[in-house]
Amino acid sequence: MKGQTIFRVKKAGVYTTFQDLGRSGYQRFGVPVSGAMDTFALQIANILVGNQRSEACIEATLIGPELEVKCSIAVAITGANIQPQVNGKSIPMWQSIRLEPGDILHFGKLQTGVRAYISLAGGYDFPEMLGSKSTDVNSGFGRLIEKEDTICGHPACNRKKIGLSKQLIPTYDKSIDAAMIEGPHQANFTEEARNMFFSTSFTVDANSNRMGYRLKSETCGIQTSGQVWSDAIPFGGIQIPQNGQPIILMADRQTTGGYPRIGTVISNDLGKVAQLPPQGEIKFHTISVDEAQKQAAEREMFLYCLETFRKGIN
């Protein structure tokens, strides 16, 4: 069933796509997972408008789109603060908002973070490919949202206004300390290389994208020794190519890679990496798998409770 027209795209923004929680289940066939870069912000955006947490949202990057509203809808905007506005007036983020036909949803200057999420109560009408609505241009799944596109959906409008408490809203810093778990290629790094890695503050290169964050440092780089056989590469994996400048593997990463990996950013810290702007700074420290999994379970419990609570007040 084709949905109603929700938006007409007046300006596309710089890299605007549909994203959900990713195309999982096909990595053994070489299909990247893709999906939202900041899965926490995506899930909150959906919960606030009463959707399933995994529903697709519009992911806007650095410069937001300009959208003309075509019917009565409820949306929520989370993630990066790109000064969302309706008809020239600022609107709050991290809460559900009613929009009426003729309204113009647009964005201003980037304040914090990189990627904003626009959920639609009822969900967007966009075809699933291999079980996901996520756009992955490199792999041939969909394309960027363009000027003059029509965006359709199944609006569910009678939604109560609801917002996230201020103290629960994540802050996105330009300088972060990310927790990681070491491995699996510890054997390819000397103690000296390892020490250098953990004592360096890296800068995010402008040439970073949904596939990977390229990091730079003033030092000569992290030396690796020996070769590794290609293996599966996870979201947050930190690979060290021959030039010694690390790359953090992000949502659109390929499924396998052949560079040594010094560690993997923990799942709870991926959101703040994904919101790190070009020229942002990042340092790493290790934590245990037990501690990382405790944090992941707490976050899941938080999202589950919020979702359950939200369903109860519709």
Binding site: M180, I181, G183, P184, D231, A232, P234, F235, G236, G237, G263, T264, V265, I266, S267, V289, A292, Q293, Q295, A296
Partner: peptide
């Protein structure tokens, strides 16, 4: 068997 982050094992 090695942990690969908190969501995978190799």
């Amino acid at each position: 068997i090695k942990a690969v982050g908190d969501c995978a094992v190799k």
